[in-house]
Structures are given as structure tokens and as C-alpha cells.
């Protein structure tokens, strides 16, 4: 299994395409940081207008911690695409390339191959999020400095002391890994159905976009199904920046995500194990 996983990782990281994701994450991060360097004050004034009427907030509001939060907020909903680039390609890409049939004539069981594909996609996801953490946090702190972090929710204003920020980011990134692993397992399932990787990548994005919209619609019907959609729980990382941290809700979200991940994975193994390889 280790050998198989090593080979899967080797295939992923020897391919130039893989590094596009890391490049995109870096580029978007820098673009947001640049935009915040030039326009950040106006943005903050706009966002704080509700509070500024009554309170006078002074100091380095636009610090690295807030910038990182803004980056995560705008970037994390697009990371599924980058995860799908690898996970959605894992089986379908090999089918398309024609290497899948050669791989499957080797004396390895199909569930093991699926597991290796999943684990390698997972490791890629972890590295991508770690990379995001490094680029977003490190460079934002370098460019914008430290300070207490403010967090604006639609109905509340939260201030977090700077000594109280880093552990939240640690947990938030860990949660992001979990959320993206769910995406990876869904992508892998779609990948098992397809014989070319465009389908799973686009379907992954389509599903994420549609479910995210449903997750955010304030209609009674959707309110009922909302708790069952994994997209509702994918933004659970934000909970770590609330006060007090809603551990129960985050825990519930994490459980939902884990259940989805395991479910997708089992379906993939079950389906792929019986699939006729005609590619």
C-alpha cells in the first residue's frame, strides 16, 4: 500500500499540471494582498460603517490576520476546483490516458487502488492548504503587520486579541483540510464514473456551486435540507473566529463532513470494484 501510495504521489507531483494549483493559490493571494494594500482602507471603512457610527476604532485594523481571513473567505470556495483538478483526474484521467487498464492488470486489488488514489489526493489537498496557509498568513503578516483581529458577521462584530488568533487559524486550516477532503472524495467518486477528467472536474464545481446556493437560500424548503448539505458545513472553519467558538456546531459539521467523505469513498470502492474497464 505504501508503495502504491508513493507511486500515486510520484505521478501527481511529477506532472506540471499539479503545480498550476499552487501557482493559482499564490497568484490569487498576492492579488488580494495587493488590492488590500491599495484599497484596503476604503474597504475597511465600508465594512465597518455600521460600527463606526457609534464607535471609534483605531489602530492597525487592516492587519495580516484580517487580510488572511479575507483571503480565506474569497479563496476557499474556489479551492474545490483545484482539488478536483487532481482528485477528479485520479481515475478518469488514467482512463482517458489509457493507463488505467495497464494499472489494473497489475496484481493489486481495485479497492487498494481507490484507497491509494484517495490518500494521494488527500495529501495533495493537505499540501495545498498548507501552502495557502503559508502564503496567506506569512505574507499578509509580513506586508500588513500584526494586530487584533476583527471579524464581521452579518449580525455581530467580533474582536479577537492578537495573542488569541494563531490557534484559531491552526484549527481553521485543519477544518479546511477536512472540508476539501470531502470534495476530494466526491471528485474521486465522479472520477470513477467517467472516462475523461473534464467531466468530474466540471461536475464537482457544478455540485459545489449549486449546493452552496441552496445552502444560502433563506427559504423554508431549503432550511429543512440545509443541515444535510455538506456545503453548509464546509465553511465551518469560520466558527473558530466566533466568540465563543461554537464547538458543538463545528463538531457536528465535522461529523457531517466525515460521514460524507466516508460515504463517497465507500461508493467509489463499491462502484469501481464492479466497473467494466472499457477505456
Amino acid at each position: 500500500m505504501i508503495q502504491l501510495l508513493r507511486i500515486e504521489l510520484y505521478k501527481i507531483f511529477r506532472r506540471p499540471r499539479t503545480y498550476i494549483s499552487f501557482g493559482i493559490v499564490t497568484a490569487i493571494t498576492f492579488v488580494i494582498q495587493l488590492a488590500m494594500l491599495t484599497d484596503g482602507k476604503g474597504f475597511v471603512n465600508f465594512a465597518l460603517s455600521g460600527v463606526n457610527e457609534q464607535f471609534d476604532i483605531q489602530g492597525n485594523i487592516l492587519n495580516g490576520y484580517l487580510i488572511t481571513y479575507i483571503i480565506l473567505q474569497s479563496l476557499l470556495i474556489h479551492i474545490p476546483l483545484l482539488v478536483a483538478l487532481v482528485a477528479g483526474d485520479a481515475l478518469a484521467g488514467e482512463a482517458n490516458l489509457g493507463t488505467l487498464r495497464l494499472l489494473l492488470t497489475k496484481p493489486i486489488s481495485r479497492p487498494k487502488i481507490v484507497m491509494a488514489k484517495f490518500l494521494s489526493s488527500f495529501i495533495y489537498t493537505v499540501l495545498l492548504i498548507v501552502w495557502l496557509a503559508v502564503v496567506a498568513l506569512f505574507f499578509s503578516l509580513l506586508l500588513f503587520g500584526k494586530g487584533d483581529m476583527i471579524n464581521l458577521k452579518s449580525d455581530s462584530f467580533i474582536m479577537i486579541l492578537q495573542k488569541d488568533v494563531m490557534w484559531r487559524y491552526g484549527l481553521a486550516f485543519a477544518f479546511a483540510v477536512l472540508a476539501m477532503t470531502t470534495i476530494a472524495s466526491m471528485s474521486l467518486l465522479l472520477s470513477a464514473f467517467a472516462d475523461n477528467s473534464i467531466g468530474p472536474i466540471i461536475s464537482t464545481m457544478g455540485i459545489v456551486v449549486v449546493l452552496t446556493i441552496l445552502s444560502n437560500l433563506e427559504l423554508p424548503l431549503f432550511t429543512i435540507i440545509k443541515p444535510y448539505l455538506f456545503t453548509t458545513h464546509m465553511i465551518g472553519w469560520k466558527g473558530f473566529f466566533d466568540d465563543p467558538v461554537p464547538y458543538a456546531a463545528i463538531g457536528k459539521s465535522a461529523v457531517v463532513l466525515v460521514l460524507y467523505t466516508v460515504g463517497f469513498l465507500l461508493l467509489t470502492v463499491f462502484y469501481f470494484n464492479k466497473k467494466d474497464i472499457k477505456s
Binding site: 471609534d56 492597525n60 494586530g147 476583527i150
Partner: peptide, 9 residues
């Protein structure tokens, strides 16, 4: 280095 927060003047 932290933020200051006071009611309006």
C-alpha cells in the same frame, strides 16, 4: 499594537 475601541467622541 492592538486595536483601540472607544465610543464616539
Amino acid at each position: 499594537g492592538g486595536l483601540s475601541m472607544l465610543p464616539k467622541k
